[in-house]
């Protein structure tokens, strides 16, 4: 996580990293995974382990039921994937939120500097107000828009 080079006073605040959007995308992927995995693999295997051919009673050699062991291992791996997804989601959320703060500060700082430059230019141009009336007006409008953008960025 660090400052990004492309953020200037011209940058649209919407381009800042959006943790909510990232989280929703990952979650949607996770839901797609569970909707596939559960009815296709997880539930049938679980049923077979409980009462079917993968149970210890259905096949047992010398006290061992390797088919039961392997099937339980598969179930455990599916569960581990669910846990990994949850942890991944948590980490991504944290990292995205931190990056968002960095980029927000960066944009606000860039906007603030540009507002200051424009105000300095207005002061200089005001020495000959009649001649520079249009330019002064342009600068004042720009300052107004930058202030609005700054407020939007604060509210992100």
């Amino acid at each position: 996580m660090s400052k990004v080079e492309w953020i200037t006073w011209k940058t649209d605040p919407k381009e800042i990293i959006n943790p909510t959007e990232i989280e929703e995308t990952i979650q949607s992927n996770f839901q797609e995974y569970t909707h596939y995995m559960n009815p296709v693999i997880y539930e049938p295997l679980k049923q077979e382990i409980k009462t079917g051919g993968l149970s210890k009673d259905a096949f047992n050699v010398g006290g061992y039921s390797p088919s039961n062991d392997i099937a339980i291992d598969i179930i455990n791996k599916i569960e581990e994937i669910k846990i990994s997804y949850t942890l991944l989601l948590k980490k991504i959320r944290e990292e995205a939120i931190n990056q968002k703060e960095i980029e927000k500060r960066q944009l606000i700082s860039a906007i603030t500097e540009q507002i200051k430059r424009d105000q300095d230019n207005i002061r200089i141009l005001s020495n000959n107000r009649q001649k520079n009336e249009n330019e002064i007006l342009i600068l004042k409008n720009r300052i107004k828009r930058l202030e609005e953008k700054k407020q939007i960025t604060y509210s992100l």
Partner: peptide, 11 residues
Amino acid sequence: VYIDHSKLTNS
């Protein structure tokens, strides 16, 4: 050795 062929076949 314990084996249930019909359950195994189903699995």
